[in-house]
Design a protein around this nucleic acid. Sequence first.
DNA 1: ATGCGTTATT
DNA 2: CCGCCT
Length: 895
Amino acid sequence: MDCEIGSASTQVLAGNISSSLLSLYHLRYLDLSCNRFDEIQIPEFMGSLHKLRYLDLSMSKFIGRIPPQLGNLSNLRYLNLETYSYVRLDYSFNDGTYSTDITWLSRLTSLEHLDMSSVNLSTIVHWLPVVNMLPTLKVLHLPNCQLGSSPDSLLLSNLTSLETLHLRGNNFHKRSVPNWFWDITSLKHLDISFNGFYGPFPEEIGNMTSIVELDLSSNSLVGMIPSSMKNLCNLERLYSSRNNITGSIIELFHRLPSCSLNKLQKLIVPDNNLIGSLPNTLVESLSNLSWLDLSVNELTGNVPMWLGESLSNLSWLDLSNNELTGHVPLSIGELTKLRSLALHSNNLDGVIHGDHLSRLDMLEELRLSDNSIAITVSHTWVPPFSLKMIHLRSCQLGPKFPRWLRWQTQAVSLDISNTSISDMVPGWFWIAASSVEFLNIRNNQITGVLPSTLEFMRAISMDFSSNQLGGQIPKLPINLTRFDLSGNHVVGPLPTKFGAPRLKTLVLYNNMISGAIPPSLCKLRLLQLLDLSRNNLNGSITDCLVNESSTSMTKMSIINLSLRNNSLSGGFPSLLQKCPDLIFLDLGDNRFSGTLPAWIGEKLPSLSFLRLRSNMFYGHIPVELTKLVNLQYLDLAYNNISGSIPRSIVNCRGMTQTIYTSHHLRYPYSSIFTFGENELVHYTGNLMVLTKGQERLYTGEIIYMVNLDLSCNNLAGEIPTEISTLLALKSLNLSWNNFNGKIPENVGDLMQVESLDLSHNALSGEIPSSLSALSSLSRLNLSYNNMSGKIPTGNQLQTLEDPASIYIGNPGLCGPPLSRECSSQPEPIPEHHEVASNDMVSFFLAMGSGYVVGLWVVFLTLLFKRKWRASWYSLYDGAYVQVGVTWASLRGNLG
DNA sequence: ATGCGTTATT
DNA sequence: CCGCCT
């Protein structure tokens, strides 16, 4: 039942249902569907309307138990109890209706049509014997009822009239055969999709010679469709998406019933394992086919000519996500009824000319993204269609701005990213695109400026990144939620009014934006990701919430904030006290100064990544910082921090627990998508890494980065022994400080550590032998301390490159890899020129530590990306949040 | 001059 | 979705 707004079925009764309805004693027909009753139960007195033949209570917000009194309605021919399950305004879920005993149904002996869609029947095991007592039943809808049992057989079937059986979305999870429904040979419509049926495609399908429509989608059926399909001479629609159909597409075509090929309307088999090429010729006629979906298979070869020549009624063609090669045949242009053409994500090449498209006047969707197709039409070509969806990513449209888009004024989704356009954006483009909701022109060389009329566009998401757009940022469209203008030549200040109150993502990094961060930013209460890094912003960050009077307006939603690489000054921004959801914070490479406030620990409870590198912060590391239990990345390098490392750093679970055990990053919304205590946020980030002077941007799982970098400060005292409990650390850098005392004996516990740099301190004593246990270590620097004694050997320590430089500048050390033997007396202090040259080596090593970190990050990304991403997507599907982050790993380089 | 695949109020 | 049939 559709309850479309404005349709005849939309009814707006609210509140309760009065029992005065009973006075309508002779009522035979009652339709209360699609109303907005106030989450009431179906009244029991409805069972007293004895003359009812037709009762429709569907989609009306009923909750609770279905009253068994409905069993008194012995004249019912039609009963629709379809539950309307929906998310309430507070994001809680309406559980709808349920029944724990449906024996009352068996008394409805005249019932022809029963619909209990989405009624929770999970506790009922023997539902089928009840249904089997309804011999006149023609239509049975029990989808999404949480049914768990589907008997193998029905010994005495009364369901001889059953024509429609709809069991989608239950929990059968058993083999596809035997199952009782294969014996119901009267069936015309069978839907057993989304049920966890497994095993081979059943031969038994061939028994259902009346079948018109068969939906087997989203099960785990394996193999080729059975040869018994040949018997299905009434088949019009076959759906089997998301199964494991294996074998060649040619074999599948062979097994379609030749007696009904001219009736076949829909062949929907995406997301299987079909292989091979489409047949070169088509023996049988498929002249009635209107839908053909073979997407997400492993098809190879060309798009055959006959597609265009034989399928004259085709409306939807989807061959996307295969491995098709060759060019798009000109015959495609003969599919004059085509509404959707989807060939994206193949290996197609060649050129699409105006001749391919000039007769497709019904076309609404054109998806050719991610091929090597060039679309070459004449400069004056006017398309016959008015597309709603234009997805041409990575096709070649340029270098001139494609002029035919001028006529595409109805587009809702337009993606011409990475299409080799190297041109000035024409004025008409902004008019044509004014109804586009999803606009993506990234990765071109488009020049020009954003128009002042931008604010009147309908856009929800705009991606202009990596072009050469200049000018200032105008006021934004009111519906905009995502705006990416990174990597352009935008100048001037940020707008005093953003004009986009729903903005969630604002990405402006790599431009030339100047001036201060305006107070208008505080109006963006839904903003979760803000990346202003690599601009020319200056001034201090005002607390634009400080004067907000309304108490409900004193919070921002920001999760991810990067202001890296600007010229911002002032103290640690007090505004952040009102950002309790903050997880990522990067203020690195600015001119911030002052002390680190104690309130960080109280006001930013979710903070996991804190990067303040290369500023002018001074004072102690506040002990309150260690209240950040989720902190896993702390980079305070290149500041003037003094004092010592708080021993309470062991409280930072993000550093003590490996990611595999500490799923601490929370989904920031309380919604139906949460998973209790252990919900996980999936972060993907854009990771800027400097390698040998070249900057590359990686996509990585920042979630894996666990780092403590306090290098180049004025920290002193002993390295607390507690440091060895930070078991998740991948990198520890305490170099260029004044640490003294011994290296903690248990440093070898840091089994995850890949880079350890304690150089340029005043550490003394022997090097703990536990170091040799660090099996992940690829980078070690202990140079320029006062350590003495024999250098430990073994295991990983033997594999490190340039071993001598690791220990240089420690006059008391002896043994390999140094030349000085341990039995001999300490050597005299080396000559001055030696120190100088070694100093250079150490300097480069220290400055290059980021290079190592960079390599580490790349390695990590490669290592974990596939393996963990796959499992996390499946485990926590829907529970992840994408947070893009740009991240410069360091400022030094070797180049 | 990322590459992938989803987004959208949730 | 009836009304009338068996």
